[in-house]
Amino acid sequence: MKPHHGQIGAMNETEALKLMEENRFAHLACHNRDDIYLVPISYICTDGFIYSHSESGRKIDIMRKNPHVCVQVEKIEDYSHWKSVIAWGDFEELHGYEANEAMRLL
């Protein structure tokens, strides 16, 4: 049996969005000056938006100061078969009805 070598290539936007919608766990990167934070999160992706829930703490403090964030989602089958999407966006804190709707989705 010959080993199968995966191909390195870029996904199109539709494929990337599908991967993000099919998964529920990601890594979130945020920073403010010299304070860089990378943390796993659970989330849901719908209509091109990522929704996640968090208690107050370091991550929320950082994102309130600098809303620019990066999220990495992956699907790993084995060493040669994996996909990864990196998306950049801005943190937005939801309140009231919007927060309740996001929690319902989660």
Score class of each variant (00 low, 15 high):
Met1Thr: 13
His4Pro: 00
Gly6His: 12
Gln7His: 15
Ile8Val: 11
Gly9Met: 09
Gly9Ala: 10
Ala10His: 06
Glu15Gln: 14
Leu17Arg: 11
Lys18Trp: 04
Lys18Gln: 13
Leu19Ser: 05
Met20His: 01
Glu22Pro: 01
Asn23Tyr: 05
Asn23Glu: 10
Asn23Met: 09
His27Phe: 12
His31Phe: 13
Asn32Glu: 10
Asp35Asn: 12
Tyr37Gln: 11
Leu38Lys: 06
Leu38Pro: 02
Val39Gly: 03
Val39Thr: 14
Pro40Lys: 01
Pro40Leu: 02
Ile41Gln: 04
Ser42Gly: 08
Ile44Glu: 00
Cys45Ser: 03
Asp47Ala: 15
Gly48Ile: 06
Phe49Met: 09
Tyr51Phe: 02
Tyr51Arg: 05
Ser54His: 00
Ser56Val: 07
Ile60Lys: 01
Asp61Ser: 03
Asp61Lys: 09
Ile62Tyr: 02
Met63Thr: 11
Arg64Cys: 09
Pro67Met: 00
Pro67Tyr: 00
Val73Leu: 05
Lys75Val: 08
Lys75His: 15
Lys75Phe: 11
Lys75Leu: 09
Glu77Gln: 01
Asp78Tyr: 14
Ser80Phe: 09
His81Ile: 15
Lys83His: 08
Val85Met: 00
Ile86Trp: 06
Gly89Leu: 05
Asp90Gln: 07
Asp90Pro: 00
Glu92Pro: 13
Glu92Lys: 15
His95Arg: 10
Tyr97Arg: 05
Ala99Phe: 10
Arg104His: 15
Leu105Gln: 10
